[in-house]
Design a protein around this nucleic acid. Structure first.
Length: 489
RNA sequence: GGUACCCUGGCCGAGUGGUUAGGCAGCGGUCUGCAAAACCGUGAACAGCAGUUCGAAUCUGCUGGGUACCUCCA
């Protein structure tokens, strides 16, 4: 099996990936808090970890991919009065919290499916794992790294920091943070502002609450990932992923909880995707400068010049390395759209290439293949892999245009590359296939094109142009090629 | 204020010491009744200054500009 290199946030270095169990990968990724529509920012981790999973499977690993749904415990802020995000949305829309959760979970799944991401192996919900979370709080309390106050339980960062280093993941020191902290309102229950809630006592009117040894309440946000990752992947597992904005405090707290309860962090490789920016600024809910995926797919947002297909978004994201920020702009999306179109055209053409017996083998093709694999296995460098794939596109086109020849073995290599890498690992599906337009429409258009062909043969260009214009006004594009006339909606 | 990161050609975006990234746009060409599309080819960059080095986009320092995290955020 080929060596796979992965950047580990914990060590701040690229490391050779060695799974805890040979041939098996356990991956946990922080999923969405379902209180709003998925936006372009959500597409980044969705696609990043999807490609990671696809790549591991392609390389022969068995992967268990766990991605949670946060449906409780995620507060608007860290003060005692901070409202649960979902409860708040439910109050505003006069719905049950679980109606909000159901609605946005379904919509999230739909968006992820359009982006051609594979579903996770397990998709646990925080509200379905209250028992596990309560039991984890008990362990942390027993070890002396948490305290109860007024029905709520808080993680004791200072006590923890006396034994284990708090801040190793995000690279900060508690002392630094203490000397530079802002004072927040409404934290009377906590010993220190760095302490974070493991269990919160719920107000009487609160719906999302469960009984516990301490109070009727609900679990803290950071707790769910510790509890659910351990449940489905074990106390030790290979990779924990998520957006880089979750590094602190979420992942730092998770690591602390794991260590406090079990004496070890439990995660071998921490992996973080970077942000998508808009005009150089992070795209996010709190900044309300985000574009939802639906708006992108339909073009219904004032800053969008046009709509962009899910695969365009996917391609756009894959053209940047996952650890780099990626700036959104119409220009960049349009460039991605055209590049993708060319890639997919070659992907379709490669199967129909005529190979020549006795044509010399192109060493370039082997180099391209090697380049693609080594790029993907070097911390999942998809932009480099795509660059090599575009070299393959050029070869396909040259053969297609009869500017060069290819033997059957090389052709097979190319076919496999497009199938297994473009379609399989990168997950770029062909959106242009006409199979879904219906046989009747296909037939009708073919009849019309046949009439136009006859008009052209008779040099009746007025008639042929008229047909073209009429079809155009219906949104059907006509392309005259050497082989005949292509059309697309 | 603390910590970290970034600044690459018109745009997006790879690249950690010496060789063409790639995509889009541009330009030149092929094809075509025309158009569109498609295809081929191609010029162009490393924020500024100083240093290390035989040699730096790549290492070091300074200056300028920007971003992220420190409160919820993918």
């Amino acid at each position: 099996m080929r060596e796979f290199i992965l950047y580990n946030t914990l060590s701040r270095k690229k490391e050779v990936f060695v799974p805890l169990t040979p041939g098996v990968v356990g991956l946990y990724v922080c999923g969405p808090t379902v209180y709003g529509d998925a936006h372009l920012g959500h597409a980044r981790p969705g696609i990043t970890y999807d490609v990671l999973v696809r790549l591991f499977r392609h390389l022969g690993y068995k992967v268990r991919y766990v991605r949670n749904i946060t449906d409780v415990g995620h507060l608007e802020n860290d003060s005692d009065t901070g409202e649960d995000k979902i409860a708040r949305k439910a109050r505003l829309e006069q719905l049950e919290p679980m109606e909000i959760v159901q609605h946005y979970t379904i919509r999230y799944h739909e968006a992820m499916k359009l982006l051609n991401t594979l579903p996770p192996s397990i998709e646990p919900r925080a509200s379905g794992h209250i028992i596990e979370q309560i039991s984890l709080i008990g362990e942390i309390l027993n070890k002396g790294f948490a305290y109860e106050n007024n029905g709520s339980v808080y993680f004791d960062v200072e006590a923890y920091n006396n034994i284990y280093p708090y801040g190793i993941l995000s690279g900060r020191l508690l002392e630094d943070m203490q000397s530079n902290s802002r004072t927040l309102e409404g934290q009377e229950d906590k010993k220190s502002s760095f302490d974070f809630a493991l269990w919160k006592k719920a107000a009487p009117e609160h719906i999302m609450k469960w009984p516990s040894p301490w109070s009727e309440g609900f679990p803290g946000w950071h707790l769910e990932c510790s509890a659910m990752s351990a449940k489905y992947l074990g106390d030790n597992f290979d990779i924990h992923g998520g957006g880089i904005d979750l590094l602190f405090p979420h992942h730092e707290c998770e690591l602390a909880q794991n260590t406090a309860a079990r004496g070890k962090g439990g995660v071998k490789y921490w992996m973080h995707n970077n942000m998508i920016t808009i005009n150089g600024q992070k795209m996010g809910k709190s900044l309300s400068n985000f574009i939802t995926l639906e708006e992108l797919f339909t073009g219904s947002h004032k800053i969008l010049d046009q709509s962009y297909s899910p695969m365009t978004i996917r391609f756009f994201i894959l053209q940047a390395h996952y650890r780099s920020t990626l700036d959104f702009s119409n220009e960049a999306l349009q460039a991605a759209e055209k590049g993708l179109k060319r890639m997919m055209q070659a992907s379709r053409d490669v199967c129909n290439l005529a190979h020549s017996y006795g044509a010399e083998s192109l060493t370039e093709i082997k180099e391209i293949k090697e380049g693609i694999y080594s790029a993907l296995c070097d911390d999942m460098n998809t932009p480099i892999a795509l660059a090599h794939l575009f070299e393959a596109v050029r070869i396909v086109n040259q053969v297609k245009e009869k500017q060069s020849k290819i033997n059957s073995e090389d052709k097979e290599t190319l076919v496999k590359l497009f199938e297994e890498i473009v379609g399989g690992v990168l997950g770029l599906a062909d959106e242009q296939s006409q199979s879904n337009t219906g046989d009747v429409l296909n037939g009708v258009i073919n009849i019309i094109l046949d009439i136009r062909k006859q008009a052209k043969a008779n040099k009746n260009f007025a008639a042929s142009d008229h047909i073209r214009d009429q079809l155009n006004s219906l949104g059907i594009q006509i392309k005259d090629t050497k082989e005949g006339t292509d059309w697309s909606l």
